[in-house]
């Protein structure tokens, strides 16, 4: 793809961003970048079953590369149905190649702002999910312990 074509794709995504908007009730809301420099984005992630992503959206402001590349990666993840682990495995350099290295030039950080923020969102989701699972497992353990304790009490003849 020529540099002009790369720029045309980026500008089209910038002017018509895919998956744009706030997702109410998202599991994770992750801020990336900086409004002071380059640009900033907010990614909204809704997790699905078995490590899948049910929904993704973003809002943001800033330069063409950061906003367009975020639109590009979110579109790809949802269209290709990538799992969370597949997103975490995505290579930044390969993504810059896909966006268009000639158009991006030295602004690779702007180009990967969306992908890096998405990865951060996924990691937070996984931490919180693991935390919830752990919490749930602990609660279940307590219920089982209580039941087992009650059963032993019954066997000793102190039950009702």
């Amino acid at each position: 793809m020529s540099r002009q074509r790369q720029i045309a794709v980026l500008v089209e995504h910038y002017q018509n961003p895919r998956r744009w908007g706030v997702t109410e009730g998202a599991d994770v809301v992750m801020l990336g970048g900086s409004p002071e420099c380059g640009g900033s984005i907010v990614i909204y992630l809704v997790g699905g079953k078995e490590g899948r992503i049910r929904d993704l959206s973003f809002t943001g402001q800033g330069d063409i590369i950061s906003q367009a590349a975020t639109s590009l990666i979110l579109e790809r993840v949802m269209d290709d149905g990538l799992t969370m682990s597949e997103v975490l495995d995505l290579d930044y350099e390969a993504f810059v190649d896909r966006v268009g290295r000639e158009a991006v030039g030295s602004r690779t950080r702007n180009a990967t702002m969306g992908l890096s923020t998405l990865k951060s969102a996924i990691r937070q989701y996984q931490r919180e999910t693991l935390g919830r699972l752990h919490h749930r497992a602990c609660a279940q353990r307590r219920v089982i312990d209580t039941l087992e304790s009650s059963s032993r009490t019954d066997l000793l003849g102190y039950g009702s």
Binding site: L10, V11, D63, I65
Partner: peptide, 9 residues
């Protein structure tokens, strides 16, 4: 510019 592609558009 800060936004390096603005000139191109």
């Amino acid at each position: 510019d800060e936004d390096v592609l603005l000139y191109e558009i």
